[in-house]
Design a protein around this nucleic acid. Sequence first.
DNA 1: CGGTAACTGAAAACCTTTTTCAATACCAGT
DNA 2: ACTGGTATTGAAAAAGGTTTTCAGTTACCG
Lengths: 144, 144
Amino acid sequence: MTDSTLIHTNLRQNHRKLTRPRQAVLDVVMRAQRHLTPAEIYQKAKKRHPRLGLTTVYRTLDLLVEMGFIQRLHLDEGCHSYVATQQAHGHHLVCADCGRAEEFADCDLEPLMKSLRAKTGYDIDVHMLELVGHCPSCRHKQKR
Amino acid sequence: MTDSTLIHTNLRQNHRKLTRPRQAVLDVVMRAQRHLTPAEIYQKAKKRHPRLGLTTVYRTLDLLVEMGFIQRLHLDEGCHSYVATQQAHGHHLVCADCGRAEEFADCDLEPLMKSLRAKTGYDIDVHMLELVGHCPSCRHKQKR
DNA sequence: CGGTAACTGAAAACCTTTTTCAATACCAGT
DNA sequence: ACTGGTATTGAAAAAGGTTTTCAGTTACCG
């Protein structure tokens, strides 16, 4: 609920509206423990708001990314997916089996970036970091 | 030339062939200082081998990635591009303006991965790390 | 409430990537 | 060199995924 009002305020500040379709999309991504593709989000959000169109899903996802509430993940299989973001500068550790995503912020790449700046002369302003592994629950399942 | 023979040997071991179209694609990616999209690679490689088909470009790129000679980059604008790889475990620092790509290997994420393993219980096996910035030459150009 | 700007959804357009299949090129063995 | 067999090729078509268009609708502010 806190999220909802926060988003509502945020939208109003930019002369934008909190509509039912947007609520449906937002809700699906926020509730999910895992990353979801636009098609998956469409399917799930449709249950909540049946007349939803796929177009709106894409538009809403762009909007939410821009607002910083969700984040786009680039994965090798079926890139692109989306996950909710709690922190401002969040990275994700994703389970290759079930898609569950854990967020972390302490990426501490400063030493690396400093040495690369010195070595290459680049200005470095963005970095993307994603880890992929297997979550405990999927590991246990596989043992059997 | 060294690359070429290395690849030739590598292909033969797997009962695969080093054909003209493949040479053309390989050559384009290897020579480029920057990352290139499949369409760009197609255009450039066509100059060398005019009857080249786009299909073959895709197939060859997959093959070269699998063999480890090139690498796929995931960039926010127009993901996917490809770059040549020198080292086995290489990451890239890419210029947002000209696309030039610098490779580096010393990513030292072990401390982070160790702490995440402890915190989340995940097995972590892959990580993707890409840095984006502005190369010295593009920075100078912009100053004017 | 009512006016207005923002938003929506269906359809079409677009772009990228993959599949299909008959023709071709490479390479090993002679 | 030549040749047979298999991997590879390229055009066309199919398949995906994403964006654009536009007339109708909805949320929000006064």
